[in-house]
């Protein structure tokens, strides 16, 4: 009985370790450098959104001007 449990535990353990074998950027993450990447990504995306927002405002302004002209 003990052998069966041992075998079961061992097979589960080997499954887990196998799954953990794939190389990931673990040290990179531990050093906290991933936050630099995220900060850069966020700044670039927010900048693009800001530009879209400015275009949005310009279009709204033109729409209003045209509406006033028509009235």
């Amino acid at each position: 009985m003990n052998k069966v449990i041992l075998l079961f535990l061992f097979s589960i353990f080997s499954l887990i370790t196998n799954a953990q074998n794939a190389e990931m950027a673990d040290t990179f993450r531990q050093e906290g450098k991933i936050y630099v990447v995220i900060a850069v990504l966020a700044v670039v995306f927010v900048s693009i959104v800001f530009m879209l927002f400015i275009i949005e405002r310009k279009v709204s302004k033109l729409e209003k001007e045209l509406k006033n002209k028509a009235d």
């Binding site: 799954a19 953990q20 074998n21 794939a22 991933i34 990447v37 995220i38 966020a42 995306f45």
Partner: peptide, 11 residues
């Protein structure tokens, strides 16, 4: 962008 970089993924 944030959680996609930080969140857990299968190895």
């Amino acid at each position: 962008l944030i959680w996609g970089m930080l969140g857990p993924v299968p190895r």
